[in-house]
């Protein structure tokens, strides 16, 4: 299992630290790609995103998508 993926039951979530992937970044992603994220959970310092992903590679692409947006913020 990759370090950024958290399995909760049968569901897979991307685990993102809120200091590095802040709420405004997640909001921007939701605005731009409303269908990309199916659910969000917050716990302590982390945000857990469940993606509408078919393959594991989609999770990796999403990581870079976040970096792309963060750099341009």
């Amino acid at each position: 299992m990759h370090p950024f993926i958290k399995k909760i039951g049968p569901r897979l979530f991307i685990k993102l630290h809120k200091d590095l992937y802040p709420a405004d970044l997640i909001d921007k992603i939701i605005k731009e790609e409303p269908d990309a994220i199916s659910s969000i959970k917050k716990k302590r310092n982390y945000t857990f995103l469940e993606l509408n992903a078919e393959h594991r590679s989609d999770y990796f692409d999403f990581l870079n998508y976040l970096i792309y947006h963060k750099k341009n913020q």
Partner: peptide
């Protein structure tokens, strides 16, 4: 580095 790798950040 996005062309060469996937990047994940944690604290």
């Amino acid at each position: 580095f996005m062309d060469r790798s996937y990047i994940f950040l944690d604290k």
